[in-house]
Simulated assay, not measured.
Amino acid sequence: MTIILGKYKTTAVSTAKGKTMKARLPSYFSFSQANDLVRIGRQNDGGYLVSMSDIEKSDLLIGLGICDDWSFENDFIKHKDVEVIAYDASVNFRFWLKRVLVETIKNPFSLHGVKKVISYRKFFQGKRRHIKKFVGLSTLNESHCTFLEVLNEAGNKNVFLKIDVEGSECRFLSDILNNEDRVTGMVIELHDCDIHLDEIEEFIRKCGLSLVHIHANNYAPIRLDDNLPLVLELTFSKHAELSNSCTLPHKLDMPNNKNSPEYELLISDNI
């Protein structure tokens, strides 16, 4: 059986519940775990581990990429009621119309699609804004903007970043580094790690924030020749107290795909 999710195609692995698959990362991914990690966002895909200290020091949450899931943003403001600016041009009237129609066709008596629209309208109001733009490119198309434009919109505030822009993140890694003094903490999903491994290494080595947690997204496959996971979720912190040891997966981690085994990460020189 195969699973197709976005551009990834991989073979489903039949294992007992709770089993893991081993994946490997180069030694420059070595990190010290934050002592105060909390899970923010829903179970499985959409939830991330971040430092509570960074949440408390933040004045603004910028979410790059939301689709139909703002559980991270919703959980964040339960801990600290900050301003929220979310960016995603794919979420518009046509998106919600299609969502409602699909849900209705699947189950004419279901109100799930309608409830989701109501939840969206209820959440994004007042100091919680949704800007219908993709982040990462400067183009003639008004539905795109650069990361620097995002920061200009934010103003001079202590910013927490949640970045899940399906591959565009590598277009502005250098801009994050150049403006990291404004960032309290960050969780970033890195796609196509096999192609961008050199850029990711440079980002980790140069980043002034501490790498405090790593999780591999098990919706994406593991490269066969060296066991490299192709999608990673990295958490960086400015304010966390760090531990001398870490365990992966962390007790708060969950597989993104609940129907496939979690990836057990090993950090080694032999890759």
Rank of each mutant, 00 (worst) to 15 (best):
M1I: 12
T2L: 14
A16F: 13
K17H: 06
K17C: 06
G18V: 08
T20I: 00
T20D: 05
P26S: 00
F31H: 01
S32A: 11
L37Q: 06
R39N: 12
R39C: 13
R42W: 06
R42T: 11
Q43P: 03
N44L: 08
D59A: 07
I62S: 04
G63N: 13
G63E: 14
I66V: 15
I66Y: 09
N74I: 13
I77D: 02
E83N: 08
Y87I: 11
N92W: 15
R94E: 14
R99E: 04
V100S: 08
E103H: 09
I105H: 04
P108C: 10
S110Y: 03
S110K: 01
G113C: 06
I118S: 03
F124R: 08
Q125I: 13
K133Y: 00
K133L: 05
F134S: 11
L140C: 04
E142G: 05
E142H: 07
V150G: 07
V150I: 05
V150E: 05
N152E: 04
N152M: 01
N156F: 07
K157W: 02
L161F: 05
E166V: 10
S168E: 09
R171A: 10
S174R: 14
S174Q: 13
L177M: 01
R182F: 01
E189G: 03
D194N: 15
L197K: 05
D198F: 09
D198E: 13
E201H: 11
E201V: 01
R205H: 05
K206L: 15
L209Y: 09
L211F: 15
A216Q: 11
A220F: 07
A220L: 06
N227M: 14
L230C: 01
T235P: 14
F236R: 04
F236I: 03
H239P: 07
L242I: 09
S243P: 09
S245Y: 06
C246R: 12
H250V: 03
L252R: 03
M254S: 02
M254P: 04
N256Q: 12
P261F: 02
P261Q: 05
P261A: 13
E264G: 04
L266N: 02
I267M: 06
I267Q: 06
S268Y: 02
